[in-house]
Design a protein around this nucleic acid. Structure first.
Length: 152
DNA sequence: GCCAACGTTGGC
DNA sequence: GCCAACGTTGGC
């Protein structure tokens, strides 16, 4: 069984509808070491990915995607005009990495953060922990299945 | 818009 | 290596 993941995006920046339209996209702009390590070291092609809308009303998991390309350098770190520029990134040492993900489905019903926090079957879900800011996080398989059920 | 939680930076 | 200051995230 592949590992399951969750990625966050503010819908005003990139939403599940944007992914549905694009079919696939490069998941650039991750600028946190822990998130990068997950993405670089453990995300494998074919792994399922829950798509979460942060800073949304309501914050919720809204759909499902899949990793379709494993980690490679995030070139946006080397674009001084871009919002994800990091002057420390070089061609030899890109520092930041990204994967590509592809659209699978939009949930029939968003699974809200409030609902997940209240669900005993989702006890321990990283997303529901207080102060959880990690934008790429692993999800236990049982939790993953539960969330997919709720979104159907 | 507020603010708590968290990560990073940089002086010492 | 400590820790205060600062910037960001993201729920509410």
């Amino acid at each position: 069984m592949p590992r399951c993941w969750l990625v966050k995006s503010e819908p005003s920046a990139y939403s599940i509808d944007d992914l549905a339209r694009d079919g696939r996209t490069c998941w650039d702009g991750v600028r946190n070491y822990q998130a990068r390590n997950f993405l670089r070291d453990q995300m494998k092609a074919g792994d399922p990915v829950l798509f979460y809308h942060s800073n949304a009303d309501p914050p919720a998991i809204v759909g499902l995607a899949r990793v379709c390309r494993e980690a490679y350098p995030d070139h946006t770190a080397r674009n001084p005009q871009g919002p994800h520029f990091d002057p420390a990134a070089t061609e030899e040492n890109p520092i930041w990495m990204m994967v590509d993900i592809e659209f699978i489905q939009k949930f029939a019903r968003p699974v809200t953060l409030a609902e997940m926090k209240a669900d005993p079957d989702l006890a321990g879900l990283m997303l529901a922990q207080r102060g959880s800011r990690l934008s790429v996080q692993p999800v236990a398989e049982a939790h993953f299945r539960r969330i997919c059920e709720q979104g159907r």
